[in-house]
Design a protein around this nucleic acid. Structure first.
Length: 422
RNA sequence: UCAAGAUUCCAU
């Protein structure tokens, strides 16, 4: 069973759940009875493959059979449901396990806290945190990291910094992930200098920053236009033997183009393209580059690079098209923009809400309000609720054209469909 | 041998 379980895990991790399921069924036939670890591995694998319905079915089958769900089963399934957006169902499972006399552990609570924090409901995350304290479940470094992440995302970086101290006094030692969460969180709040201090602090405490940590700080510095400081971090990495990865280079490329050093960004791009270099550019690299070019009004160069790459079989995504469509619209080339949009759709790329906003906003600014309205109505008619941003874009244009009455109607409509105007 | 946390892309 031990060895078969390892194989099950292997299949699941390589994304081949079906193979794992097949093997699992064979086990039953061949008198290698699956144990709870086999079941849990499959439940977890299904969850990770976003097949939470099947995971739940298997879970029900366990309840009916001899191998009852245990703590690991519950935590895997709760996490899976949460990541699938079914957080309330996750809470129901928490209740169910408690009724069965299974005490939730730190895995279960951390999964739920992480879910609420990601939804932006920190208060409920904190509630669960208090609940676990009340039940004498000791929070660990993962629990604290989730909370720090959430605090930073909502601007409460002071509280997050405080939490790093709190965990230390609770004898929970921050690890490299915890420090990275904080450093990144500080950066996202425009406090790159403080993030650099976190780097120093962790080294002092004997935790080595890894590539992700450095990338977060490099990003923070670049966002503040401090590309030279970011390059110093790159040197620091080299000294310590930490390898930059494609994210590192992407971040720097974007940083360079952000401070107008588009030529240097191009050089970096060429470096990544060269055969001898060990890191290959990805779609982020391309997108950053063409966006930088568009910003510099070098739309032609952007399109040329995009075309060359596509010809070479490079995989682009909808964001690539969004950037180029936006570029065309900003250059007043409406026909080209619409052509490209159609082309992307024909290739099978699904326009996302950003695509729509770009088009609506762009058309509005081109005095083509009527076309924008058409797009908006088409979307509404097909049953898709326009986003707040799209309402805003259209309302802004209507106001600009002094069609106040129509703008007011839209505003009213937003409230009717339960959109909170921002 | 099974479960929870971190870094880079587009628009208002």
């Amino acid at each position: 069973v031990y060895n078969v379980n390892l194989v099950l895990k292997g299949f699941c991790q390589s994304g081949d759940c079906d193979k794992a399921m097949g093997l699992f069924c064979q086990m039953k036939r061949n008198c290698v009875l699956p144990d709870s670890i086999s079941y849990n591995t499959i439940v977890n694998g299904l969850c990770k493959a976003k097949r939470s319905v099947e995971a739940r079915d298997l879970f029900e089958a366990m309840k009916a059979g001899d191998c009852k769900p245990n703590l690991v089963t519950f935590s895997a399934l709760i996490d899976g449901l949460c990541k699938n957006g079914e957080v309330e169902e996750g809470l129901d499972l928490l209740e169910e396990m408690e009724k069965k006399g299974l005490e939730a552990n730190v895995f279960v609570y951390s999964a739920l806290i992480s879910a609420f924090c990601n939804k932006g409901e920190i208060e409920r995350g904190k509630q669960l945190f208090d609940e676990m304290l009340g039940k004498n479940v000791t929070p660990n470094v993962v629990t604290y990291s989730c909370l720090m992440h959430a605090l930073c995302k909502t601007g409460k970086w002071q509280e997050a910094s405080q939490m790093l101290n709190d965990m230390t006094t609770s004898r929970v030692h921050p690890d490299v992930v915890a420090y990275t969460v904080l450093a990144d969180g500080l950066c996202k709040n425009g406090r790159a200098s403080d993030a650099v201090k976190v780097l120093d602090l962790m080294v002092q405490k004997g935790e080595e920053p890894n590539t992700l940590t450095y990338n977060a700080v490099i990003n923070g510095l670049c966002k503040e236009g401090r590309v030279d400081d970011a390059l110093k971090i790159l040197e620091m990495m080299a000294k310590k033997g930490k390898k930059p990865d494609v994210v590192t280079y992407n971040t720097l490329l974007k940083g360079l183009s952000g401070v107008g050093k588009i030529e240097e960004a191009m050089e970096l791009w060429e470096l990544l393209l060269s055969k001898e270099f060990h890191i290959k550019p990805d779609v982020f690299t391309l997108n950053f580059l063409i966006q930088g070019l568009c910003k510099e009004r070098r739309l032609g160069d952007a399109v040329r690079i995009y075309s060359t790459m596509v010809q070479r079989g490079f995989q682009v995504n909808i964001v690539t098209y969004n950037i180029l469509i936006d570029g065309y619209l900003n250059a007043g080339k409406i026909t080209k923009a619409l052509e490209l949009w159609k082309y992307a759709v024909d290739l099978g790329f699904s326009p996302n809400s950003v695509t729509c906003t770009i088009l609506i906003d762009g058309l509005c600014r081109m005095q083509m309000l009527r076309m924008a309205k058409g797009l908006f109505n088409k979307k509404r008619a097909s049953g898709v609720r326009p986003t707040v941003i799209e309402y805003n874009a259209l309302m802004a244009s209507l106001c600009r054209e002094s069609s106040l009455e129509q703008a007011r109607n839209l505003f009213q409509e937003m409230r009717n469909v339960n959109h909170d105007p921002d």
